[in-house]
Nucleic acid binder design. Structure first.
Length: 246
DNA sequence: CCAGACGTTGTT
DNA sequence: GTCTGG
DNA sequence: CCAGACGTTGTT
DNA sequence: GTCTGG
């Protein structure tokens, strides 16, 4: 479900919003159509640096665990279920020690509609819906991250990758789908990011549906459906459709 | 997530 | 149907 | 013990 | 690495 989102806010704005100490990225492009395997900006508390500063850095979307033989597994590890994240071998280590926030200016869900097609048949239409903060603030999506290095190549660089955590949908989204990404409230950021937090039950308690009042949604163009389309127009509100409209 | 492909050989 | 690419 | 997977979603 | 299935 949660396989496409919007990342438009500049590193500077994100650094301010998330109280980031250090920006470790330059020249990162905004995207209104972030798909799996893209590089996304992530907020993480770096335990290897004195004082575990909050850092903004790019990571590949699709988690590649340290034991993976190649990058391919990341294609399937884009969403971690909150209910089972502590148990799953692919996520367990990251959940215990490598949690992050994936900033998003919104995300997409799809409504499958039936339209009259040729010869009296019906045709499935994937209608994208843009979901975002009512006040236009970036959302703090709960994320997990991992480091991986090609075991075949001793000179290979370390690759940082991430996944987002999903939970059951709130009432606003329930008619679209039964899952949604976890959106962390400000008060939860510290505990979630701190690598030293070892109260797993407390962490899991943070992984609940966002309040309906925080979010707003509207239909957008099906141009979103092609992952290589991009631009501000992808989040424009679609005119309400009439019974006989197109 | 959706859209689009879904294959192998030998040759440059 | 299932996998890959974006 | 070894081998093999390691994930989620939606849709009919 | 770690878990599950056989």
């Amino acid at each position: 479900m949660c396989g496409r989102f919007v990342a438009v806010s500049s590193p500077q704005l994100l650094a301010e919003h998330f109280a980031v100490d250090e920006i470790r990225v330059e020249g990162h492009a905004a995207s209104w159509n972030v798909a799996p395997r893209a590089d996304v900006l992530v907020v993480v508390a770096d335990p290897r640096t004195e004082g575990t500063p909050r850092v903004l850095e790019p990571m590949r979307w699709g988690l590649v665990p340290g034991w993976a033989k190649d990058l391919g597994i990341g294609d399937r590890l884009i969403n971690a279920r909150a209910e089972t994240v502590a148990q799953k071998p692919a996520y367990e280590r990251s959940f215990r020690g490598r949690r992050c926030i994936v900033p998003a200016d919104g995300f997409y869900e799809w409504r499958t509609e039936r339209e009259p097609g040729v010869g009296g048949r019906t045709r499935a239409v994937k209608q994208p819906v843009f979901i975002h903060d009512r006040g236009g603030e970036p959302l703090a999506l709960a994320g997990l991250w991992a480091t991986w290095r090609d075991p075949e190549d001793p000179d290979a660089p370390w690759i940082h990758s991430c996944a987002i955590v999903t939970t059951r949908a709130n009432a606003l989204l329930a008619s679209l789908h039964d899952r949604m990404p976890v959106v962390l409230p400000d008060a939860a950021w510290d505990v979630w990011l701190d690598p030293a937090t070892d109260d797993l039950a407390r962490l899991q308690g943070l992984l609940v549906p966002a309040p309906e009042t925080q979010l707003e949604l509207w239909d957008v163009s099906t141009r979103v459906n092609k992952a290589d389309h991009d631009g501000p127009d992808l989040v424009d509100r679609l005119p309400a459709r009439t019974l006989f409209g197109t």
